[in-house]
Design a protein around this nucleic acid. Structure first.
Lengths: 119, 119
DNA sequence: TCTACGTTTCAACAGAAGTTGATATGTAGG
DNA sequence: CCTACATATCAACTTCTGTTGAAACGTAGA
């Protein structure tokens, strides 16, 4: 991920409705949510939400697929990871005092499979 | 860190000059950089930079201290960590497939002291 | 205290971003 | 094919954000 992509991703996440959409989609998991369901979840008009979804899609943070009449959106887990990687890369330029708290935070996250942490 | 703070932080990082400032400060380490030096580094007029620095400060991403005539800015490592934690917290809502790539990315970062990773 | 230097504040402007309502596309069922 | 439903697009408006130039503040040395 280069600066331009990171910039787009951060800008996308720096908007209330879009941040809520991403959180809702990440929570929803790989199955994702239909645009209409999302619109209700974040309380945004459908046409307006569509605008934000396009923006998030361009930023590489979400993906979409059609299922019948609905369009299902889901979190782009790879994109989110890349963004974390970008932050980590920045924090690692010889100054471990930034990274270590993040590592500790991640270690406290119990969703890890144990393959990498808790070894 | 609550949503409002995360929102402010993401919005702050979603701006070219501010992202460059943060990267420069993170790279510079705890000693930080004077406002004038930063202005040259990111090629932004002093008064304009001051505006961005205030914004980053409000977002909790940087701190400042006066040293003689200069004002020295440095990265708020705790704030950056909190932001990472916020992303991690979101990604951990029962869906390890998001978290694991991030964990792998962090594991590849060689700035860790080895206390948490590489165990 | 006067001057020089570094930084910040302010008002004004220009441009971008978000919202809204109307309209269009695309899909399924009768 | 026609209708109903779900989503997307478009143009217009409003609001927010970033930039600029002028001026103020605060600090250090003569």
């Amino acid at each position: 991920m280069d600066e331009r992509q990171a910039l787009a991703a951060f800008a996308a996440l720096g908007q209330e409705h879009r941040l809520r959409v991403v959180r809702a989609l990440v929570t929803a998991g790989p199955d994702g949510l239909a645009a209409g369901v999302l619109a209700e979840a974040v309380n945004v008009a459908g046409n307006n939400l569509s605008f934000h979804l396009k923006e998030l899609s361009h930023a590489g943070l979400i993906t979409s697929r059609r299922e019948g009449k609905s369009v299902i959106y889901s979190a782009a887990y790879a994109g989110l990871s890349d963004l974390v990687q970008f932050l980590m890369r920045d924090c690692c330029q010889g100054h471990p005092e930034v990274c270590n708290p993040a590592v500790a935070a991640l270690a406290a996250c119990d969703c890890t499979t144990g393959e990498t942490l808790h070894a």
